[in-house]
């Protein structure tokens, strides 16, 4: 029940941002829509609600966002360079990296970060053994440990502090 209430509050907040006007008609419609969404999808929402009450997690998330945007910008420059170079300089391959994250949100954020990072794109996740299969545009190492260190170690530490 409590996760439905939190989902209702988040949904209502996003609705009010979307209409961006504080009058009663929009608010009433928003209450109905948010209640319906919360009723239908409440059991897909996170089970560990006490995480919302930890301020340290928000702090680490705020540290993660600028780092992520910086990596995205670098990825753009690098990808543009590869496109306009006369003989496209790529050396692609699918490598395997290890992860210690367990939660759904943590794995999703790690995979999304790897996809928008320079040169890598997540293809599949093996949850039982904790492996990610990553398509890498210029493979520097095929070893599991080595490629883990080069690709995901830095973000994994931050995301473990946010979501685990």
């Amino acid at each position: 029940m409590r996760n439905r209430i939190i989902l209702f509050i988040i949904g209502f907040f996003i609705w009010m941002l979307l209409v961006w006007s504080l009058d009663i008609q929009h608010a009433v419609i928003g209450i109905f829509v948010a209640a319906m969404v919360a009723f239908l999808t409440g059991d897909m929402f996170t089970k560990r609600l006490h995480y919302f009450a930890h301020p340290v997690r928000y702090f680490w998330f705020l540290y993660y966002v600028p780092l992520f945007i910086w990596e995205c910008a670098k990825a753009n420059i690098e990808s543009t360079y590869k496109v306009i170079h006369p003989d496209v300089p790529i050396k692609p391959g699918i490598v395997k990296i290890k992860t210690s994250l367990k939660s759904d949100a943590g794995l999703t954020f790690l995979a999304n970060t790897l996809t928008l990072k320079p040169g890598t794109m997540t293809i599949d996740i093996d949850r039982e053994n904790g492996f990610l299969y990553v398509h890498w545009a210029d493979v520097a190492s095929q070893d599991v440990e080595e490629s883990t260190r080069m690709l995901s170690r830095r973000f994994e530490r931050i995301l473990a502090r946010v979501f685990e």
């Binding site: 995205c72 910008a73 990825a75 753009n76 990808s79 543009t80 590869k82 496109v83 306009i84 496209v88 790529i90 692609p92 996809t115 928008l116 320079p118 040169g119 794109m121 293809i123 398509h135 545009a137």
Partner: peptide
């Protein structure tokens, strides 16, 4: 990003260029 769709050789590399450049 759209130019990458023409220049890169296979679907995975094309996804690379289209996802990164077009998203940002």
């Amino acid at each position: 990003g759209c130019l990458g769709l023409v220049r890169f050789p296979d679907i995975y590399n094309r996804l690379h260029s289209s996802i990164k450049c077009v998203t940002m």
